[in-house]
C-alpha cells in the first residue's frame, strides 16, 4: 500500500519543440528539463555534470537563450523551443562549423562537457563578437562552462577561429549560425 508521506506526483502534459521537432511529453512537475530531454525524449547528448547549475555541461538554448537544463523543470519549458547538441550538425551528417572547429583544434578530450560548450559558443557567436577580441575576453565569454580535460586551450583556439571566420563572412547572418536541424 502506498505511503501517505510521499504522494506519487501526477503527470502533466507539456509540448516542446526540440531541434525543430515537436514533442508531447507527460512529466511529473518535479522532473528536471535535463532529465526529460535525456530520459523521456532520449536526447542523451545533453549531459549532466553537477546538477546544480555550475558546470554548464547541460547548457541548451531555450527560446534562443542559453540556459542550464538542470536548473529548470521540464514543465517550465512547456511551449518552448529548444536547441540541443543533436540539432547542430546537418541532417546529412555534415558537422556544423562550430563542431568542425572543435575537431580541428582538439577542443575536447572526454567529450562530456563538449555539448555545453558547443551550445554556448553558438549563442556567443550570435552576438557577433569582434575579431579583435582578446583571448582574455574570449575566456571570460566561455567562463560559464567547466572542462576538466583540455585546460581550455583548444576551446579558446576553436572559438577564436570561428570569430575570425564569422568576421570574414560578408553576409550579416552567417550560415554557420543556422543549426542543421532547423
Amino acid at each position: 500500500m502506498s505511503n501517505a508521506s510521499v504522494p506519487t506526483p501526477e503527470k502533466r502534459q507539456i509540448h516542446l519543440t526540440v531541434n525543430g521537432v515537436a514533442h508531447t511529453a507527460f512529466v511529473e512537475p518535479r522532473w528536471l528539463l535535463s532529465d526529460v530531454l535525456r530520459h523521456t525524449l532520449h536526447l542523451t547528448g545533453t549531459h549532466v555534470g553537477c546538477e546544480h547549475g555550475v558546470c554548464g555541461a547541460c547548457t541548451v538554448l531555450f527560446n534562443g537563450e542559453p540556459i542550464r537544463a538542470c536548473l529548470m523543470f521540464a514543465i517550465q519549458a512547456d511551449g518552448g523551443e529548444l536547441l540541443t547538441v543533436e540539432g547542430l550538425a546537418h541532417p546529412d551528417g555534415t558537422l556544423h562549423p562550430i563542431q568542425q572547429a572543435f575537431l580541428a583544434h582538439h577542443a575536447l578530450q572526454c567529450g562530456f562537457c563538449t555539448s555545453g560548450f558547443l551550445i554556448n559558443t553558438y549563442a556567443f557567436l550570435q552576438t557577433h563578437p569582434s575579431p579583435t577580441m582578446s583571448d582574455e575576453e574570449i575566456r571570460t565569454a566561455l567562463a560559464g562552462n567547466l572542462c576538466r580535460c583540455t585546460g581550455y586551450q583548444g576551446i579558446v583556439a576553436a572559438v577564436r577561429s570561428l570569430i575570425q571566420a564569422q568576421s570574414l563572412d560578408a553576409t550579416d547572418e552567417m550560415p554557420a549560425l543556422t543549426a542543421g536541424g532547423e
Binding site: H39, T44, L88, Q99, L103, G111
Partner: peptide, 20 residues
Amino acid sequence: TRKEDPRFLTGNATYIDDIE
C-alpha cells in the same frame, strides 16, 4: 585529429547514463 571526436561532437557518444 581524433577519430573519436565526431560522436562526441554530435551528441552520439554513449556514456553510462545514456544506456537505457
